[in-house]
Amino acid sequence: MLIQVLNGIAYGGLLYLLAVGLVLIFGLREIVNFAHGALFMLGSYIGFSIAAVFNFWLGLAGSLVAMTVIGIFLDAAVLRPLRKHDHMVTVLVTFGILLVLEAFATAVWGKSFRSMSAPDLLSGTVQIAGEPFPVYRLFVIGVSLCVAAGLTAWLRFSRVGLYVRASSVDPTTTAILGVDTDRLSLIVVGLGTGLAGLSGVVAAPLMALSPTMGNYILIESFIVVVVGGLGSFSGALAAALLIGQIHNFGAIYLPWASTMLPFLLMVGVLIWRPTGFAGKRT
């Protein structure tokens, strides 16, 4: 049982790394970024390519840096110019970016599945409660918890974190009070995209790399954001860990329904509490 719980935490941690980027971008730009799964995929491939030449750790760092830069470019070149347009226009543009990035990945890395190995340091298993458990999944849990703790501290104690929290609820009022939300948005979209890249590399040894690898996990990340409460960072963490458990135990005990369970959870939460776990009742 403990092993299965840990597996669920590892998957939930991955979902959190991806979903928290969506939360960051949704909060400030008020858009649902359909390209986020493709950015996860691109980060994965970039890490894969760097790791093939150097090593896993440089792949991890290189992908984080490259995707952060891509995120800054995405905000400056795409999201900011579209800020005065209807949100649906921006959503459709992000969907277009998804298609472009998938075509780009197909052209560069091909359609066939690629695999990326965990580094030697993280290979093998450890005994937990008398059962073997992969070291790499402990690493995934560790990275997720470190990111969650780091983000929480940043949001809670730093001045920029205060601005991000304020703008995640009301970006217009935050800007009217004097916060340069354009500069803040560069930071937030860069960070969110960088985390998508980080999660892509962290996930790579656990899943096959393909141009469409981001699609399913993106849908589950959307469920995390909705269940956690739009714009809520703590809600996203709670929802990701819960959906990780549902995903894992569902696959074991209700395999015929396992892909449905996260959606059923979302429907149930929306009926019970339409604003999600951490949203305010209206």
């Binding site: 001045r159 205060l162 601005y163 929290r165 304020a166 995640s168 609820v169 009301d170 009022t173 935050t174 009070l177 004097g178 916060v179 305010k280």
Partner: peptide
């Protein structure tokens, strides 16, 4: 801002 404390709301005003 409903998700901020009174002090955090005030500090937001000092952002300039």
């Amino acid at each position: 801002l409903p998700n901020l404390t009174i002090e955090e709301n005030l500090l937001l005003g000092a952002s300039v």
